[in-house]
Each structure stands twice: as structure tokens, then as C-alpha cells.
């Protein structure tokens, strides 16, 4: 776990992002939200709910009364009033479990998600996590507690990719559960029908959320660099196989992918949704830096 955590919080990545005036961005976001009541990091003022204890939680936050009542450890959660409530939505469908160079899209997405959570929590903003495939796998509501990060990391570490993708449906479902507007960050390969996805994203926007889409694709998915006749087997759908000569279709394939990403980019842009296509071969710090630069 220590190694994984170290991976997710690579100091080079985080240092690279800190240097890009992240703070100024949050200020702008704070002005737009009109509320900035965070006074101290990790300090709660309003009870929200109980949750089951997980390793890493502070002992002093255990609700001893609840222990006496249920004979189980519960932690009392308090809601912070912050500038930002960010929902990090990570696609964990089987299609994310692909890599052409050692780092799967899922690993890349986890790293990105954790990095974003860290950055958000570090700014004393609230960050939550939703992992999903064709259903919601886990839901961690946003909190602005500084010790909230281990929960998010734990949820990421215990999650393995699997299941089919149904992004549009999930987005609608999550949108129904988010009561307060904030920021929604979707990390997914978006390998699904574009229309439902865009519909879901627009729903977030309709509810006043800022929406950021990190479209994660492996470089091989962008370039199709293979040679020879290959039987391609779909990662999610059984019996969806196709024999193809990559050399013969490469040019067209790239056009198709480009059309898809362009379509998503344009539709997002038209809906004031931030869209960032990131290849897993792109260094994480540069991906975040380029995104933050663009946000700025």
C-alpha cells in the first residue's frame, strides 16, 4: 500500500502542478461560487453522517456512543463549508484495464484521481469519489477534511476494473444524488455511446456544476500501432471479436478516433464543459499542468 500511495503522490507530479498558479484558479472559482468559508483545514462544524471506521482514521473521531450501541466502530462525519465541492467520478469498467506500455488506463485514472483529490483537499476544499462501471461501485461523498484522502485512496486501491461501461446512465444516476452544486470531474475512456454521455454531462451542467472531463486513452488506442493480422477481442463485450490488419485500417482508425474525440470536445465546449484528452503515455504532471493552464 505504501508503494501504491507513493505512486499516486509522486512529489514531482505534485510539485509540477503547484508551480502552475493553482491557487489563482481556485480563487477565481471561489469568486464564482460566492462562498468561501473554509477557515481551517480539516475542521468540521456540522455533523453530516456516520461512516464505518477505516484504517487511518483518527482514533479521537470514533463515536464511542455508537460503538456502545452497535458494537461497531463508526466515525462521525462533519460537513465543511468550502469554496468547492468536487466529485471525482472514476470509470472502472473493464475497458479501463488496458495498457500497451505497462500502465493501464485504470492505474493512470487512479493516479490522476488521487492527485486531484490531494490537490483539492490540500486547498481545504471538499473532494468525493465515485467509482462506477455499469453501476455505481462506491460512493464517497465530498469532504474537506485533510484526513479524508486516505479514504479515497483506500477506495481506489480496493477497486479493480471490471464490468461493462454505461457512462450515460451512471452520470444521470450520480447527478440525481448530488444535492449541491460544485465540480464534477469525470475520468473515463468514454468508450460508450457519445449521446448518453453528453446528456449526463449536460445534466450536471444544468444543475450548476462545473464539469471537467478527463478522457483517458492509451496511446495504442489512439495510434493502433500493431502489425500483422490480429484477432481483436473486446475487453467488455464477450463475443465481440474482429480480425483486422492494423496496417490496412490504421489511417481510417485514427480518423475515426479523432472524429470521436473532436465530437466530444466540441459538444463539451458547446455545453461549457471542460474536456481534456489525455494519453496514458503523457506524463501525469504535464497532463495536469496543461489542464490547469487551460483552466486558467
Amino acid at each position: 500500500m505504501a508503494n501504491r500511495e507513493k505512486n499516486y503522490f509522486d512529489p514531482k507530479v505534485l510539485a509540477g502542478i503547484s508551480n502552475l498558479s493553482l491557487r489563482a484558479r481556485w480563487v477565481v472559482e471561489g469568486i464564482m461560487s460566492g462562498i468561501h468559508r473554509s477557515r481551517s483545514k480539516g475542521f468540521s462544524v456540522e455533523f453530516e453522517e456516520h461512516r464505518e471506521y477505516s484504517p487511518g482514521d483518527e482514533i479521537r473521531r470514533i463515536d464511542w456512543k455508537a460503538l456502545g450501541k452497535f458494537d461497531r466502530y463508526f466515525i462521525k462525519e462533519y460537513e465543511d463549508e468550502t469554496n468547492l465541492r468536487a466529485h471525482l467520478l472514476l470509470d472502472t469498467s473493464a475497458s479501463m484495464d488496458y495498457t500497451s506500455d505497462g500502465l493501464t488506463k485504470f492505474d493512470y485514472g487512479c493516479t490522476l484521481t488521487a492527485s486531484l483529490a490531494y490537490l483539492i483537499l490540500r486547498q481545504q476544499d471538499a473532494a468525493g469519489l465515485v467509482t462506477f462501471s455499469d453501476r455505481i461501485e462506491s460512493f464517497i461523498p465530498p469532504r474537506a477534511k485533510r484526513d479524508y484522502l486516505p479514504q479515497i485512496v483506500h477506495a481506489l486501491e480496493t477497486r479493480r476494473p471490471g464490468g461493462e461501461t454505461n457512462v450515460g446512465k451512471i452520470l444521470e444516476e450520480i447527478a440525481g444524488q448530488i444535492k449541491r452544486r460544485g465540480m464534477v470531474i469525470l475520468v473515463s475512456d468514454l468508450l460508450d455511446e457519445p449521446a448518453p454521455i453528453l446528456k449526463g454531462l449536460r445534466l450536471f451542467r444544468f444543475k450548476g456544476n462545473d464539469v471537467i472531463v478527463f478522457h483517458i486513452l492509451d496511446q495504442a488506442e489512439l495510434d493502433l500501432p500493431f502489425e500483422g493480422n490480429i484477432l481483436f477481442e473486446d475487453l467488455e463485450t464477450a463475443n465481440l471479436n474482429v480480425i483486422a490488419d492494423p496496417r490496412a485500417i490504421r489511417q481510417t482508425y485514427r480518423q475515426v478516433v479523432e472524429e470521436f474525440t473532436n465530437h466530444m470536445r466540441k459538444e463539451c465546449h458547446d455545453s461549457s464543459i471542460d474536456y481534456q484528452l489525455i494519453s496514458t503515455s503523457t506524463p501525469l504532471d504535464r497532463a495536469l499542468a496543461s489542464y490547469l493552464s487551460w483552466r486558467e
Partner: peptide
């Protein structure tokens, strides 16, 4: 034939 598990089969099709 080489077999390859690939996520973007729909693009290939």
C-alpha cells in the same frame, strides 16, 4: 492470427 484484448474494438469495426 495474434489475439489481442483491446478496448476500442468499436472503432476498429
Amino acid at each position: 492470427l495474434n489475439r489481442l484484448r483491446f478496448p476500442a474494438v468499436r472503432f476498429i469495426l
